[in-house]
Amino acid sequence: MIDYLLTHPFIGALVALVSLALIFGAILGFAAVQFKVEGDPIVDQLDNLLPQTQCGQCSYPGCRPYAEAIANGDAINKCPPGGQATINAIADLLDVEAPTLDEEHGEESEVKTVAYIREDECIGCTKCIQACPMDAILGAAKQMHTVIADECTGCDLCVEPCPVDCIDMLPIETTLGDWHWQPPKLPQQQFENIIATDKQAVEDGAAA
């Protein structure tokens, strides 16, 4: 046998290659089974990154369905409430280039909002209750409704169904509790008006 192989180097090489392939295949297979990573399934991780507004602006009925869609290859830039930050985070997770937000699905709004029902206009039709994905509206038929501001995600799905248009999306105001400093201008950003800043300082001084 060995002699035969030695005399036919081509066949010998073939045999060697095939057996090597088999051995390594076995090792790899074993490793795959043995060291299987039981991590979060990707959908959970994606769902974790999405803002859970459940607004449906991505055209899916909620954040989790969109997470599933992303996992199946949908674009990652369809979530306006999450905005660029969310897109970046997802891009980070999936290791892809971060695109900008797809304007088709809406624009990222600067301020967070919360629904507010003008209570004396509310006729108690319960339409908004049915629309709210968060169960954040409290009320019963013929009773004035109200929004649990803490649970409202600002998805504005309740605005549309209201027959008397008594729901407003109000910007969330900063309070003493959540106020914090804004970052100062970065050196790069002061370029255009560096002289202006100087001037400003002088003016400030003059005014003061």
């Binding site: 999405l50 803002p51 859970q52 507004t53 459940q54 968060m134 959540d178």
Partner: peptide, 20 residues
């Protein structure tokens, strides 16, 4: 801090949504 709060809120939102 804000992000931590939001994260907590979004987790809660997810729960509520799933419940619903």
């Amino acid at each position: 801090r804000q992000q931590a709060i939001e994260k907590e809120k979004s987790d809660r939102s997810r729960l509520r949504f799933e419940f619903r």
